[in-house]
Write a protein that binds this DNA or RNA. Sequence first.
DNA 1: ATGGCTGGCGACGCCAGA
Length: 264
Amino acid sequence: MAGRKRLKLATFNVNGIGARLPHLLDWLQREKPDIVALQELKATDQAFPALALEEAGYGAIWHGQRSWNGVALLARGTVPVESRRGLPGDPGDEQSRYLEAAIHGIVVAAVYLPNGNPQPGPKFDYKLRWMERLAGHAATLVSLPHPVVIMGDFNVIPTDEDVYDPKAWRKDALIQPQVREAYARLLGQGWTDCLRHLHPEQRIYTFWDYFRQHAERDRGLRIDHLLANPVLSRRLKAAGVDRWVRLEEKASDHAPAWIQVAAG
DNA sequence: ATGGCTGGCGACGCCAGA
């Protein structure tokens, strides 16, 4: 029936696709997301498990890198049509952190922003530059006549409501004022932070570190985000986090964050 | 205030993550 069908879009930092493939396949089977962005593959292009994903019903494109970084896009029942590989603005940037494709009629950008620690320092400078480059490219996407989503691990704690203990993180790159301001400027282009938009008062976390049983105690951060342009945000129906994934044995330190949108 | 844990690499610890 018209208006009843929905698409589920999700982003998941797997922290090593080699170590996490069983978890990833289990999650795909249980939650059946239609569009998925993955980060931190920590694998070369040759090591990407394309066959296992295809057998699970997902077409994929990926941009790997030895040991670190790496992003991918999955599409349930189809294959993503790649539109961009790598973020524009710095031809010398070798890190695999950006991949963009058309999937089910939506322009989908998968991002893995630099962590930026320690700060201050060159890694923090790289993070700020990367965010400027992202804003430059996002400005060309936000006003497209098509639905667009930018989703991934932003490594940004947007506000003090997005962290269990702001004081404990005050020296961390993820919470610095310059980083928050850069994220706020990006949203100011017209992007909707979907989880916060639909749940303005809730504590929502997408990451829990491996220390002190923080996952079990729900002491986390909200750093994985899905940003919708105005055309897509009008179709937004639901948003959430699959926290159960984080509570499994040998889990990633992130859980998948997702939205549901009305089918186009 | 600090260090706690994990994956990848590669074969012992080290780097990076957040």
